[in-house]
Design a protein around this nucleic acid. Sequence first.
RNA 1: CCGGGUGUGGCGCAGUUUUGGUAGCGCGCUUGAAUGGGGUUCAAGAGGCCGCAGGUUCAACUCCUGUCACUCGGACCA
Length: 477
Amino acid sequence: MANEKMVKAITSMDEDFAKWYTDIVAKAELMDYSSVKGCMIIRPYGYAIWENIQKTLDGMFKETGHENVCMPMFIPESLLQKEKDHVEGFAPEVAWVTHGGNEKLEERLCVRPTSETLFCDHYANIIQSYRDLPKLYNQWCSVVRWEKTTRPFLRSREFLWQEGHTIHATAEEAQAETVRMLETYARFAEEYLAIPVVKGVKTEKERFAGAADTYTIEALMHDGKALQSATSHYFGDGFARAFNIQFTDKDNKLAYPFQTSWGCTTRLIGAVIMTHGDNDGLVLPPAIAPIQTVLIPIAAHKEGVVEKANEVYERLCKVCRAKIDLSEQSPGWKFAEYEMKGVPLRVELGPKDIEKNQCVIVRRDNRQKYFVSLDDLESEIARLLVEVRDSMLEAARNRRDSMTYVAHDLDEMIKIADEKPGFIKAMWCGDRECEDALKEKAGVTSRCIPLEQEHIGDTCVCCGKKADKMLYWGKAY
RNA sequence: CCGGGUGUGGCGCAGUUUUGGUAGCGCGCUUGAAUGGGGUUCAAGAGGCCGCAGGUUCAACUCCUGUCACUCGGACCA
């Protein structure tokens, strides 16, 4: 059977999920390895996905009044040192520049792992009055973290991201901003990536270095592991105090402003792969798919097929990101190829279709086939692209829900964590010791304290003492 | 960082041990022909400092030492 090779090309996800993942990122031509460990080459098809993510998010940020800036990539060591928790959190994984040409630098420079310190240093210079606030800044850049274990898109030593940094006159305003951006990420994940997420707050243990509160959106991958997909931090005035950022308020008093930061990375691409992909490859949500519809002419050598295909292609281009494949490959080869690349819709057009003034449209997500009159082409494509996104989200949500369990005591927690991959909801007393113990005994970490709380018990899953917080737990990437 | 696995044309692998003797297969690629609604067929070609660096040897893909990368699991992190 001709299909044998295709099946072999991608390792089945049930057989070896990790290999399935790396097969996809390589074979769908999303990335390639470079000669530096943990630094990947994002290839055109992968980068186009990032560009689509970027375009949409950037629009959402700008709609809410944010401006893009560009900070340097180097941070002097003394600047990084200013906030104690922050430097302790990042120092173990920063890369240092020690020489300029052949000369040793007076002070070594760290390659930014994140830019809080740079923004703070800058804010200290430009903010004097309450009239200078708020500043709603964002930057698109790459950062470097010298990770020990690396995986394409999920954990690389250099990665692309977006980091928002805002500064406000009041704590309330900064807190509102933190939540607003969390909501923005959650909406983006669900509407554009078709990935259902749990919105919540991190425990103190999992909090960002230097933050007062860390909000997160947590998604569940196909293999039952959680993936932190974006974070939004409230800093209080901690950074402002450390960097001596002050402003004169309306009452002519000196005050410290309040800050936030929020970010998401190319890891989102990993989230898309591991949420929607299947054993035939990628399945891309239409909103970020570099190619939304691929047109495959059948029996292209026959009279009139190419002409008609080009005509249909022109029409497709007006309603979506379309591609026509006129290459010499067999139709079957092309079907498999674009399925592997996750193209949401495939349009087949052959002599029989032309005769009937129709085309065949096939969905990637569920393989459903539609025979569509060419008169309805544009409207059907538009309708199906929306439908694909909707059913992808629904399928992902159903799967996540079916992999979400409830544990009431430690034995139950250990049993579920051991046997059933997925999220585990359980009550928690708030003690760090219990959190550590659950990691130790059940191998799970706290994912978040969801904003939408459910009452599933009154006692801590670990120690049995009184508990009023319901948490999501799980194994995470 | 700790432990396991793997590095041989673009990709997937064989060859390595008891036998050290100058590299082979499949896919892909190029050319030609036929085919064309699920990875089509036939024919002819091109392509390899055997991860890198040392060492042993007349001779190393093969033995020894070191190193790098990828990968899986663990610890740490987006």
